[in-house]
């Protein structure tokens, strides 16, 4: 029985660790997620789509996915520049800057949320000059949400691109140059294609994180239904109205989209590996 499922090993503890891992995983992750899907399923096929396809939910989908896309694009550009500067150049304080990049991973989201909202409020350090000079309002508008999502997603791009840039063999660039390529040609034809898969992965991770993000967004968003109301907030609102099935339906539809994104991510990684093997 075991021999079909598992290759023989002299090490002990297979039954113990697998048993513990599966029980813990089931109790903490699988059973509760099952409860979510069961609750959403209790609405029935049509009831489910009735709960999801309302104007307010669709608007929240648009806000969450659209602005996460914007933030991920900003992060792809600036995250790449940050990774490039950290790998290729020397400057004073570089190690400090490198450590600072992980701040959004370490700083609690609620803290980031109130800090950003204080900075970009109409009387804040950044919000005030922007408002007075350009008449631009950031806090309590979609721009504010995009800024919070940029903050949250930045390390994903930097930390996926950085190791790939670091391991790029210098021989490839030297070869390109010795064959007469200019610096620009070398970058766009040799360096960039090698880094692109990592950049896409970082973009996708930053995007996925943005869609689910709650704490850093709600303080700066203004939370106007249809305009600056994100999906996770809508779930909280439905819960507060005791609409458990509705909350479960929105949650399940979000999870479905997350699964699809995870799948795309895995395919991209697979594609990256097979390209490297070539």
């Amino acid at each position: 029985m075991t021999s079909i499922l598992k290759k023989p090993s002299v090490l002990p503890g297979f039954g113990l660790t697998l048993g513990f891992t599966l029980s813990y995983l089931s109790i903490i992750v699988l059973l509760p997620l099952g409860a979510l899907i069961a609750k959403a399923g209790s609405l029935g096929w049509f009831g489910f789509w009735d709960a999801v396809l309302t104007p307010r939910v669709l608007a929240a989908f648009q806000v969450s996915f659209g602005l996460s896309l914007v933030a991920a694009a900003i992060n792809a550009v600036f995250g790449f520049i940050v990774a490039w500067v950290l790998v290729r150049y020397q400057f004073p304080g570089k190690r400090l800057v490198d450590a600072l990049v992980d701040l959004p991973f370490a700083l609690p989201t609620a803290v980031a949320g109130i800090a950003l909202s204080a900075l970009y409020a109409p009387n804040g350090w950044i919000g005030k000059p922007l408002n007075e000079l350009f008449g631009l309002k950031v806090a309590f508008t979609p721009i504010g949400i995009a800024i919070a999502l940029t903050f949250i997603g930045l390390p994903f791009v930097v930390r996926t691109v950085q190791p790939i840039l670091q391991e790029l063999p210098p021989e490839e660039e030297e070869a390109a140059v010795s064959l007469g390529a200019t610096r620009g040609q070398t970058f766009w034809r040799v360096v960039f294609p090698a880094v692109l898969p990592a950049l896409v992965t970082g973009f996708a991770l930053s995007f996925a994180r943005g869609v689910g993000e709650y704490g850093s967004v709600i303080f700066i968003a203004g939370n106007m239904p249809g305009l600056t109301e994100i999906l996770p907030l809508l779930i909280v609102i439905k819960l507060e109205q005791f609409d458990y099935a509705g909350a479960a339906a929105v949650g399940t539809s979000m999870l479905l989209v997350s699964f699809v994104m995870l799948l795309i991510l895995n395919i991209l990684q697979h594609w990256m590996r097979s390209r490297h093997a070539r």
Binding site: T21, L25, V29, L30, L31, P32, L33, A35, L36, A38, K39, T109, A208, V211, G212, E213, Y214, G215, L231, P232, L233, I235, V236, L239, F242, Y244, A247, A248, G251, M254, L255, S258, F259, M261, L262
Partner: peptide
């Protein structure tokens, strides 16, 4: 993949699932 799963679930959903399981009107 299942071990990594919680990272791709929105924090709000991570709370919601326990409300649906253990809350007053939960399973």
């Amino acid at each position: 993949t299942l071990i990594d799963l919680p990272f791709s679930v929105s924090p709000v959903i991570s709370g919601l699932i326990y409300v649906l399981l253990f809350g007053l009107s939960g399973l």
